[in-house]
Nucleic acid binder design. Sequence first.
DNA 1: CAGGCGAACTTGTATTATACTTGTCTACAT
DNA 2: ATGTAGACAAGTATAATACAAGTTCGCCTG
Lengths: 243, 243
Amino acid sequence: MRTIRYQEIANAIRERVQQGSYAAGRLLPSEAELSGEFDASRVTIRRALETLRDDGLVDARQGFGWFVAAEPLRQTLGQLVTIEGQMAESGVEAQRKIIEFAFISASGRVKAVLKTDHVLQVKRLNLADGEPFAVVTVWCPAELGQHLSRRDVERAPFYELLGVALRGATQTIGADSVSAADAALLGVPVGSPVLCCERLTTDVEGRPVLLSQHVFPAHRTEFVVELPNAAPSVAPSGLRLVE
Amino acid sequence: MRTIRYQEIANAIRERVQQGSYAAGRLLPSEAELSGEFDASRVTIRRALETLRDDGLVDARQGFGWFVAAEPLRQTLGQLVTIEGQMAESGVEAQRKIIEFAFISASGRVKAVLKTDHVLQVKRLNLADGEPFAVVTVWCPAELGQHLSRRDVERAPFYELLGVALRGATQTIGADSVSAADAALLGVPVGSPVLCCERLTTDVEGRPVLLSQHVFPAHRTEFVVELPNAAPSVAPSGLRLVE
DNA sequence: CAGGCGAACTTGTATTATACTTGTCTACAT
DNA sequence: ATGTAGACAAGTATAATACAAGTTCGCCTG
């Protein structure tokens, strides 16, 4: 399949920035250096960097250089990323505390959605800099998770543990009052508002591979959704941004 | 039985797209390449691709190439946007009750975001079949809203009333406990959980034209968001350049 | 030591050229 | 009606090059 060079380069640089290879606030290599490294002309390097600038990931000052933008503050839903990845990006140390780890027989909604009988159910508490951040319950088909140990899921995010290429996800966002159990875990008063997210992740062939439920305390979490509407030629008709 | 070549080819390509062999938003092989692969002339390949374009499955830009029409973008928009419209479209009658209608001097966040001093502030209660559904507060620059009357905003949604071409929006979704005032309007107990959305809508030139705050009772509302693939789509970036 | 100058870097912005793409047309064969 | 072959126009991506403008830093001068 054909590829567009400057998009490849943009992805490569984006990864480096997100991985922290280019620390926040530090300068990136100059366009000339990148040009040599990627064996592409300066124009192409610039286009790549400019797309990253549009995403707010980097910025530049004439005569000075390109640098990692101050801080991407909130969670954008434009892409499929883990909460953990977002936090690591902003320099927060993420930890996980496993509350529950069991292979069980699926029932009800989990069974219906994942289309399997045996599932691995993992409930864990996510911490950011030691502070409780979210209660996450994950279900995945037992066959996919059978090689996982309690230690594994504590060490790394789920997406990295499954050797599966993921395509996308459907996420449902709602609000609720926190349950007594979750309130205790999160250290918030019983009945205080929480954001509840259910995410169904599918692999490249469209099969559901992960069902997860996230409970965030409302006072420190919000989602940001970008609604671009710049594609009149692609949209067949009636693409409106209306209530 | 005689087979029609370009229809055969169209079906073959359609399968590949639907199977994900050609990932959404990425480039297809060029007409010349496909011509070689299928051993058919370029004209025939084009006819096949054009039928697929009519179906909205793929699209092309001159000098650039054919690409899978990026569904996720549209879905994201559609799903998010229809939260209120969904009920109206499914036969439920939507009504609006104006709580407040005033031209005021902007302050704090509204002033900072809309970058103007005088704004029109409209607070209204949205009803579906007579049931309170959402409390919506809208601010827009006074110059844009000066021709609007209280009756206007009661009759039609805001987006239709402004004679402005809209580009997109950024939406922030959070949770909170409902305030006493909103609780009374929505007919829910004080302190019960609500979804709070703030949406900043911009016109085609990127200027902010509408700031709106939506409060939904949690028990009857949730958002559905499609998270597209991690790989950035090729179509939007191309279109961005045209602009 | 203070201050100004300038060399050596950086990004920003053109122009030109080439190879490749789709869009469109004509001519012709089955 | 369907398919092939070819030619040309128009748009895009990339390279190579040049120059303007901003920043940094060391060196030179007084």
